Computed example of a mutant assay.
Amino acid sequence: MPPLPRVAVLLSGRGSNLRALLDHGNALGATVVGAIASRSDARGLRIARERGIPTAINQRADHPTRRDADAAIVSRLQAWQVEWVVLAGWMRILDDVVLKAFPGHVVNIHPSLLPAFPGLHPQRQALAAGAERTGCSVHLVVPGPVDGGPILAQAAVPILPGDDEESLSGRILEREHELYPRTVSRLVRGHHAAEVRQAELLTVP
């Protein structure tokens, strides 16, 4: 049996999507070989360490420039022999040095139905816009506008009367935990991005 694709997860916070990927078990079709956090206090580091996954910390302040910081990420990923880079709550814009090192193999999940509400605080944006629904989107990360890469999968979440940013974020996160492992699994198993999109575009009317 050929070895499973090697995946690394980049995170900045609690690591709930990392946990969802790991809980997918053998169905993920990949081995998570490392986790990099942009903050030393990221709770996701504990999840990785409890599962025996190597970790690293890459804080922007520890490097002269953003490019230097991201070059260090590339070095670490290459040392782990990573094939796929999965962003799971990574709160920094990646420099092209990472994207060029792993072309077409960097994937992100964003809590909105892209192209609506890209960037920071998308739940707040959706509420302020009076939207009736929002959701989450899995997309490839490519050079260009933030959250502007090809969309692979989406799941919709209705905005309910009385919703605030916290309640809406919680319901979106539940859908993320369902959608992200399934989409990553199809990618790492060799399905072309267009095939993944056709199979996993779950936005409801």
Rank of each mutant, 00 (worst) to 15 (best):
residue 75 S to K: 06
residue 63 H to Y: 14
residue 6 R to M: 07
residue 132 E to C: 00
residue 143 P to R: 04
residue 153 A to Y: 03
residue 204 V to R: 15
residue 86 V to M: 11
residue 29 G to M: 05
residue 77 L to K: 07
residue 65 T to D: 07
residue 144 G to T: 01
residue 178 E to P: 08
residue 201 L to I: 11
residue 182 R to A: 11
residue 38 S to R: 13
residue 50 E to D: 15
residue 138 V to Q: 04
residue 3 P to I: 11
residue 51 R to G: 15
residue 85 V to R: 06
residue 34 G to T: 04
residue 112 S to K: 01
residue 83 E to N: 03
residue 149 G to E: 10
residue 93 I to D: 01
residue 92 R to I: 01
residue 159 I to E: 01
residue 134 T to L: 00
residue 164 D to Q: 11
residue 80 W to R: 02
residue 128 A to V: 04
residue 182 R to P: 00
residue 96 D to P: 04
residue 80 W to V: 04
residue 86 V to N: 06
residue 29 G to H: 07
residue 160 L to H: 12
residue 36 I to R: 15
residue 81 Q to C: 07
residue 181 P to F: 05
residue 6 R to C: 07
residue 39 R to V: 03
residue 65 T to Q: 06
residue 78 Q to R: 14
residue 161 P to S: 05
residue 126 A to D: 00
residue 157 V to T: 08
residue 85 V to M: 08
residue 159 I to K: 00
residue 173 L to A: 13
residue 109 I to C: 02
residue 59 Q to K: 14
residue 138 V to I: 07
residue 186 R to E: 13
residue 121 H to M: 11
residue 108 N to H: 04
residue 151 I to K: 13
residue 189 R to H: 12
residue 57 I to V: 15
residue 39 R to E: 12
residue 96 D to C: 03
residue 86 V to A: 11
residue 109 I to D: 01
residue 176 E to W: 06
residue 99 L to W: 01
residue 175 R to S: 14
residue 199 A to N: 02
residue 178 E to W: 15
residue 70 D to H: 13
residue 78 Q to T: 08
residue 81 Q to R: 13
residue 36 I to T: 14
residue 121 H to G: 01
residue 151 I to N: 11
residue 112 S to H: 02
residue 34 G to F: 11
residue 36 I to K: 12
residue 117 F to S: 00
residue 46 R to L: 14
residue 108 N to V: 03
residue 137 S to T: 15
residue 34 G to K: 08
residue 119 G to C: 10
residue 190 G to T: 01
residue 86 V to D: 06
